[in-house]
Structure formats: C-alpha cells, structure tokens
Computed example of a mutant assay.
Amino acid sequence: MATILVALTLLALASSVLASDPSPLQDFCVAINETKDGVFVNGKFCKGPELASANDFFLRGLHIPGNTSNQLGSAVTPANVAQIPGLNTLGISLVRIDYAPYGLNPPHTHPRATEILVVLEGTLYVGFVTSNPDNRLITKVLYKGDVFVFPVGLIHFQFNIGKTNTVAFAGLSSQNPGVITIANSVFGSNPPISDDVLAKAFQVDKKVVDHLQAQFWMDIN
C-alpha cells in the first residue's frame, strides 16, 4: 500500500509539472515575423541568438499619455511581445493605462495572465468577480502608490472616480496575455450571437438585445 501511495504521489507531481509552462532552455528567443531559417517557439518564430540586439529588448514611449478622447475615456498602451520581440518565451509583459476623469477600463478578462496594477497618479475604483457559483465582487478604491492584483482569467475593471486624469501601470504574467472585453464579445461579435440566445441568457426582451447589438462597441486594449 505504501508503495502504491508513493507511486500515485509521484505521478500527481509529474502531472502538475507537465501541466505548467516549461522553463526556457536558452537565454532568450527573440520573435521574428519571417519564417525563413526561423525556429517556432511558443507561438513565434525566433531569430538566431547571435543576431539579437539591444533593440529587441527595448521599447520607447511609455511616458507618453494614451488618447482618452473616446466613449470610454481610457486608453491602454501595451508593451508585450508584439512591441518587444525579446519578450518571447519570457512570460511577462506590461501595459500603461490612462483614464480621463470618470474614464473606464470596462469589464474584461486576460485568459492567459494574472495582472498586478499600480496607480501612479489619481484615484481608481477597481474590482474583480470570482468564478461560479459564488460570483463574488471584490472591490477597492486605489490611490497614488497603491497596488492591486487581478487573478488570471477573472472578469475585472478599473474606473476613475476622480475629477483629474489617472495613470496606472500593470504587469501581466504572459508575453501575450490576451483580452476578452465582455460587452464587446457578447454584443459585438462578428457575426452576431443570436438574439434568441442572448435574450434567454440575460432574461430580457429581444428588442433590448437588438438595441445593444446595434451599438458601436470599441476596444481600447
């Protein structure tokens, strides 16, 4: 019996290891768009390490405010593998988020990343919702210097409740965390989700669904 328990424990540990992302087996794997002579690693082709330069690990301009003159009053400036090729396989990225007074980064999820956010200027009301069946809302008002964490995959938001501009930076535990903005995905999909489906899901009249689907759903991410 003891031998069987030890074997099952080792098997469980091995399964956990196999289920996680592997550690890089080289210093870096700079992403390239060209496939010639490239090696495909973690969703990107990589250039030879001897061809890497400082610019592959560099991005200029995150001191520049994003354009918040839109219907949401916010803007996200990313620094992920699309902007910094050297991030490929390193499992980390960054965003700058600007909020006009009463600007909103609407409810969304990052399917591949936990997010840790720090407020540089201003005031934010932030929160996330736990998974089924509880769907518990956890919220906090953040001020300059405050830090908040949004667990991977959970719906979350940030709302500037102040009368001045707010700036925040967030780190994400993926080179390409992905974004699913809830309203855009549900009511702005292409082609649209059947209004019969959405009317029953939200327990509203189909005319309400039709009205929502007719709106312009913008994406700031």
Rank of each mutant, 00 (worst) to 15 (best):
M1Y: 06
A2R: 08
A2N: 10
A2T: 05
T3E: 15
T3I: 12
A7S: 10
A7H: 07
A7G: 05
L13T: 13
S15G: 11
A19T: 08
P22S: 12
L25S: 12
C29P: 04
C29I: 10
C29N: 10
I32V: 15
E34D: 14
K36R: 09
F40A: 07
G43M: 14
P49M: 09
E50L: 13
L51G: 02
L51V: 06
L51M: 09
D56V: 10
D56P: 03
F58N: 09
R60L: 09
I64L: 11
P65M: 09
S69I: 04
S74W: 00
P78M: 08
N80Y: 10
A82M: 11
A82H: 11
Q83I: 13
Q83K: 15
G86Q: 08
L87Q: 07
L87C: 09
L87R: 07
T89L: 03
S93G: 07
S93D: 03
I97R: 00
Y99L: 02
Y102S: 09
N105E: 04
P111T: 04
P111L: 01
R112T: 03
A113T: 05
A113W: 00
E115L: 01
E115T: 07
V118S: 02
V129Q: 06
T130M: 02
T130N: 03
N132L: 05
R136W: 08
L137C: 11
V141R: 04
L142K: 07
L142A: 08
L142W: 04
L142R: 03
V149M: 15
G153S: 14
I155W: 08
F157S: 04
F159L: 15
G162S: 13
G178P: 00
G178Q: 01
V179I: 12
N184W: 02
S185G: 01
V186Y: 00
F187Q: 00
P192I: 03
K200V: 14
K200H: 14
V208L: 04
D210R: 15
D210F: 06
H211V: 06
A214N: 12
A214C: 07
D219I: 11
I220K: 02
N221I: 07
